[in-house]
Design a protein around this nucleic acid. Sequence first.
RNA 1: GCGGGUGUAGCUCAGUGGUAGAGCGUCACGUUGCCAACGUGAAUGUCGUGAGUUCGAAUCUCAUCACCCGCUCCA
Length: 548
Amino acid sequence: MSNESSANPQSPAAMRSMDDIVALCRRRGFIWQSSEIYGGINGFWDYGPLGVELKRNLKEAWWHDIVRCPGKGPDGNLIDMVGVDCTIIMNPKVWEASGHVASFADPMSTCSKCGNSVRADHIWEVLSTQCAWLDSLLQEFEHFTGRIDAGHLMRWARGKGKHKAPNLALVRNPEVTLTWLSERINDQPNNPPDMKELVQYIATEQFAATGLQTPCPLCGGEMSEARAFKLMFESHAGLSQTEDNKVYLRPETAQGIFTQFWNVVDTSRVKVPFGIAQVGKAFRNEVTPRHYTYRSREFEQMEIEFFIRPDQAAEWYAYWRDARYNWWKSIGLAGDNLQLREHDREELAHYAKEGAGVCDIEYRFPFTAPGFGELEGVAHRADYDLKAHATACGKGDKLRYFDQERNERYFPHVIEPSAGADRGTLALLCEAYTPDSNRPSGVYMKFHPRLAPIKAAIFPLVNKDGMPEVAEKLYMQLRQKWNVQIDVKQNIGKRYARMDEAGTPYCFTIDSDTLNDQTVTVRHRDTLQQERIGLDKVAAFLSEKIGG
RNA sequence: GCGGGUGUAGCUCAGUGGUAGAGCGUCACGUUGCCAACGUGAAUGUCGUGAGUUCGAAUCUCAUCACCCGCUCCA
């Protein structure tokens, strides 16, 4: 990212370069690399003293607004929401039922010449739709009559083919390759090869040794056997390490909620519509962890599974989509950097094709700009998960939810707002980062006061004349309710500057007037303005500005 | 996984084969009278890591790790 910031220091992007944000996060103790003294580990990040407060504030704001005080739904009734906290390691059958074991092990094929990797089940689609050299080859056969013309192939191999598919067997060694192909045609004159087989023949040099090969869509080289990438972390529960006790670290928190759905219904007096919320770690063996904490291998989710009557999916989907978008706005991500994006039908996941919709709430991170990156997804998952678990555990329709009012049984549909706590924290950091050449620190963190890691700082103007004693008394009082800091060292400007970089919204300074008239100055982070308020009014001031 | 780039103190960087440095920051003491002031002093380095070449390597070579960029991936 050093290129990004140095390339064009005048551009708006450079004003908010990721490099500078990362540097501040490190310098002030928001985020560090995991195991940094050993060189770090790709895809894992730690939160420092300020970072942990910020992330906790985000999770607590979410829990407060979602579980404790969720507001009214589209039906005008108060929303019913309860929380759970499920384990990271679950019975492996959970992941078979959810489809993760199958879909998280997408077999990949790699080109032995150029190293290009393609999903094995997509390779023919890629070859037929996005392959430049195959397009070029097929143009040679525009007037293709059904007869395979070795002369045509040879001419292409020695001309265009050399540039477009240098590693294709036909290009490297056309004589041998065409020998195998003509043998095939002569052996079975009544069964000419179809397009797929033809493409495999021209990709094959050592037919006797290797059998038919599949060519690389980029360079024509041979693609390797498909091998599975394990996208779920694996471990073993028990001392021996065998297939029998293999377990997975959960790749999402949602499945804990689904598997406990029936216990919640039986014990919590909730009835549809209602929601179950959970905050917790999830793990994915991402191929390429990138962009600071944005795509990590260990991350934290804040998920709601909201259970509804199937016929009410559309209105609840719309409700959660708007509620969640507005929530992110309310904690300080207002403006052009936040957007709501409905998915096209084509990009929908398998469980959502027929649903009321899927959307992402996206933030314009410096590394995605001018594009956006996902903060939260809101998806109508229909009854896919509850049904899958009901079937997999062998109880099937017996696990349908009984709707007393309507006297009917059904599997509730699910609207799932699933947010990333680490991505949210990163967005808050990026949004807060505000360069300001007029202040000593050169930058300040403009956190919404509700999310700010430190709510207020208490400073004696000088470290004598009874000021420290007054400051300490105020500090002892305020810290019972808020995360506040006291600092008596060094000059006042330096202390303000430090608080600017920590994003502390208010500083209370005790000076000589305090000793006479029992007032303190309040210094506002964003405006640098100061006002005087009574020493006994400080707690009320914070309550009004921050809550709590 | 592929290709390109980067890696020296907390930060910004200097050091191109011969004693590892500066500024800022941090800490201590003094001072202080509202925005990184001043004075004195102090601490802080596996020169990303590991090998190799060399009498001698931060410097040259190779490997490796981490980060950044572009592909790829993103259920």
